[in-house]
Design a protein around this nucleic acid. Structure first.
Length: 307
DNA sequence: TCCCAGGGACCGT
DNA sequence: ACGGTCCATGGG
């Protein structure tokens, strides 16, 4: 069967490796240094970096329109300007961690992923590690998602819909290493499938941060950390600031903060908080040793921090 | 056996 | 809003 192919080219600054390996998404597969393949909505996207451009080929019955791609990759936001604002703010407070992390993360973009996929993915992330999260999600997609076959015969899978999950709770429970996380996932899917919960209502364009946060954390299996990830990576709330074990390491090592995170974060990262969070998170994960050396001596750095 | 990984629920203050 | 306690999965 002839595949549906819709090529297009993205010219904006986009570093594929940083964007796909920074922990915000779990379904992009690295083919080589300049090529990644992933499933977005109902389409398989095959991305190749060609000098300064990203060449996009997609196949599947439902290719994504350019506008949808622009939204997914957050091309509507100017990251060059945002990064300049972040660095300017960091200079005011002498925040070298943010300055270094921002430079290190040039080309990293925060995706606007499907809210339901983001919710389920980060429910799975609770008390878990990234390789195992990927395995569970992949297994869930293969068991409950719709197959998409490319022209070479390779099969990909869409992320299951709320209906597909709600209809087969026993299959969800059987997903690899999902364990106790299945309950909350099925419950959330049932609410969405029955119409009593509509995630699109809590997109940044449609809802305030606090209301969206309250709705998400009311779900079983969704605490503040997972909710922040859903808000940031799925619902477009760029003020969200997920605090996980790595961010706690950042706050402890560089800022000497080991409690009352929220208060400190609001004061220290007022400009593009979500971006800053992701920069700090990714910088520490990619440079654990260097960061240890740079930040390890609390007595020189953190004691000089204002506040 | 213990520790860790992008924690959560539940309870006290 | 914050802190403590118990809970939970699989891998190293």
């Amino acid at each position: 069967m002839e595949p549906s192919i819709k090529p297009s080219v993205a010219r904006r600054m986009l570093d594929l490796r940083k964007t796909f390996s920074c922990g915000q998404c779990f379904r992009w597969e690295r083919m080589d240094e300049n090529r990644y393949i992933g499933v977005v909505q109902g389409a398989v996207l095959d991305l190749t970096k060609e000098e300064r451009n990203i060449h996009i080929v997609q196949y599947g019955e439902n290719p994504l329109a350019k506008k949808v791609l622009d939204q997914y990759f957050d091309f509507e936001m100017n990251y060059t300007l945002a990064n300049e604002d972040i660095v300017a703010q960091a200079r005011k407070t002498g925040d070298n961690a943010v300055i270094r992390a921002t430079k290190f993360c040039k080309g990293l973009r925060i995706l606007r992923q499907d809210p339901f996929e983001t919710l389920v993915s980060f429910m799975i992330s609770a008390n878990n590690n990234i390789p195992k999260i990927k395995l569970t999600i992949q297994d869930l997609c293969e068991k409950l998602g719709d197959p998409i076959v490319d022209w070479k015969g390779k099969t990909y899978h869409t992320f299951p819909t709320p209906e597909q999950i709600a209809r087969h709770p026993e299959i969800v429970q059987s997903a690899k290493a999902i364990g106790y996380r299945a309950r909350g996932i099925v419950e959330a899917a049932e609410k969405i499938a029955s119409g009593s919960l509509d995630l699109s209502q809590y997109l940044a364009e449609n809802s305030g941060f606090d209301e969206a946060m309250r709705t998400l954390t009311a779900l079983y299996g969704v605490g503040e950390k997972v909710a922040n990830c859903v808000l940031l990576f799925g619902l477009g709330h760029r003020n969200a600031f997920p605090v996980d074990t790595w961010v706690k390491k950042v706050l402890a090592q560089f800022y000497g903060v080991e409690k009352s995170y929220k208060t400190f974060i609001q004061a220290q990262f007022p400009v593009h908080p979500g971006l800053v969070q992701q920069y700090l998170f990714f910088y520490l994960r990619e440079n654990p040793n260097q960061v240890q050396n740079d930040w390890g001596s609390k007595d020189t750095n953190s004691s000089q921090k204002q506040q």
